[in-house]
Design a protein around this nucleic acid. Structure first.
Lengths: 305, 305
DNA sequence: GGTTGGCAATAGTGATTAACTATACAACGT
DNA sequence: ACGTTGTATAGTTAATCACTATTGCCAACC
């Protein structure tokens, strides 16, 4: 029993004439005859009474035809679904973002994606890189925004932008006089850091060779989010390092804080998109990338590769 | 897209492993691989993300699988219907009976059919032979009970029983003294006949050669049914001829009527079943025939052929 | 009563498809 | 680097599907 057979069946039920039904199905009369006979043999029931005068459908035949029509209808829905789902910009996209990007990127990203792909709602999760990677590999996420380096088997990455680091200090801090801060000087001050697990924490520690030793860390305090740390800095608890997208937008609005760039070579992080090599909706990823690059993130430099 | 393809599709969706899914479908892994790929090409969507680690279903793939399951379910219903309908004794049987048999046969027939084929309800129509023949050919009826001769293209008949004719007269009638009535004598009395269209009317007229001429009919009156005529006879309006099944059951219960057989050769009518040659439920017809023969119809002789 | 005409069934053939086995290829993990 | 696991591809065979041509069957018609 094939879908073609069922199509022949309903055509014959409608036309009550093998020749006409065959014509309507664009096949020859014997083709349809044989197919119907095959169906009858397979089901072991007589579906039609053939006589010279006309073709009559049997009682059981009528019921089976009705069911066949239902099958064909449902099968047609498959094509409909496929057509509707063919557009990579249709259907929800599960997006993961690390904690140190989400709050600054998403407010810009979401309306842009919605504008570019109105029928692609975003399902967003913020988490640590490691957790995002897990979800991505499991298929719980489709695309993630993370900082490089990021290497996972089966996962491809595409750098999107570079983002310089900034030094954030309380207003009136001694370093306020300097236009740019040398990275090594971070070791001198109580440095507020994110908790373990945040990749940005490690990146900051990379910046200052002196901080890297175990003793250096004795001078640091830990906060749970960049926002928390910013508040702590404002109260004079210490200084910190922020990515420019988190640091630059605020000094105007906050008299308690001062932001300074690093001296060259400016430390920075490279932000990338990552997805499974097998992920088929590359068009959706393009939209995300374009939306990120279109977002007004302070101080970032697009990576044109 | 075939039903087989859809079976492969749902198997893969369940197993998430080409090899296992293929095994479950009793085909080789390449067979299933190719089928899925063919489906994806045909629908122009990616249904699964293949990677070394595992097989992930895409968003659209999941929706299509759900729909495929629905299709397969409905298709399975077709087989169910066929199995249920395979029994010729299941499903209603449309039975036609001529007016001069119905009232005497049906009360016996119906419980017997119901006993032999409980899931075969009878849809019964009483009518003239000509009308029954029309309905039978159109397919509005499946089987009819008629008197022979009955010849129609595409229709086969099977004699079931012979039924002798009886003379019905008012109690105290002059012929009451005779044990049997010669057919020719019918011309002497006012003969009550059914209206035109009833085959039994014509059969009665055949019995008596003298009645056949135009003049003979002047002695007749017409009634609308055998029961009506019987009442008319009881009032002394004339005599009539009845089939034995209509005549024999009653004399005990009705002191106003007398029944006498004909002299040999006893006139009789041959009752038969008729159906379209193409009608597939021969088992149902056998049941009807058996039920008729099992009915206690007075005076009838089964036709064993 | 033979004949004709319409229609479905069958025969026979070719093309397509679906299945197999064997093997290549890709990606991880040791 | 190599082995393992798992999917894709190649190549072949068998089955199926669809075609044309023809037969067979009724019923209708002359």
């Amino acid at each position: 029993m094939t879908l073609t057979d069922l199509r022949y069946l309903v055509a014959l039920a409608r036309e009550r004439h093998f020749g006409h039904a065959a014509e309507r199905c664009n096949v020859s009369q014997p083709t349809l005859s044989v197919a119907i006979k095959k169906l009858e043999d397979e089901l072991a029931v007589t579906l039609f009474e053939r006589s010279a005068a006309d073709v009559k459908i049997t009682d059981i035949g009528a019921r089976i035809v009705a069911q066949a029509e239902k099958v064909l209808l449902e099968a047609g829905q498959i094509k409909e679904l496929a057509t509707a789902g063919r557009d990579p910009l249709s259907g929800p996209l599960k997006l993961g973002v690390i904690y140190t990007i989400g709050p600054y990127l998403l407010p810009h990203l979401i309306p842009r994606v919605h504008g570019a792909a109105p029928s692609m709602p975003l399902l967003i999760q913020e988490n640590y890189t490691a957790r995002l990677a897990e979800s991505l590999k499991r298929g719980d996420l489709d695309v993630i925004v993370v900082a490089l380096p990021f290497e996972e088997p089966g996962i491809v990455t595409q750098a999107v932008y570079d983002e310089p680091f900034r030094v954030l200090m309380p207003a009136g801090h001694a370093w306020e006089a300097d236009a740019a801060i040398p990275a090594a000087r971070l070791a001198e001050a109580p440095l507020l850091l994110l908790g373990a697990g945040n990749c940005f924490r490690d990146q900051v520690l990379e910046v200052c060779p002196l901080c890297r030793g175990g003793e250096g860390l004795q001078r640091t305090l830990e906060g749970s989010s960049l926002e928390t740390i910013r508040h702590m800095v404002a109260t004079g608890a210490g200084i910190t390092v922020l990515p420019s997208s988190a640091a630059d937008p605020l000094p105007e609005g906050n008299p308690l804080l001062t932001v300074r760039p690093f001296e060259a070579p400016e430390p920075f992080r490279r932000i990338a998109l990552a997805w499974r090599v097998t992920y088929p909706r590359s068009g959706a990823i393009d939209v995300i990338r374009a939306a990120i690059l279109g977002s007004p993130l302070q101080g970032v430099r697009p990576v044109t590769r």
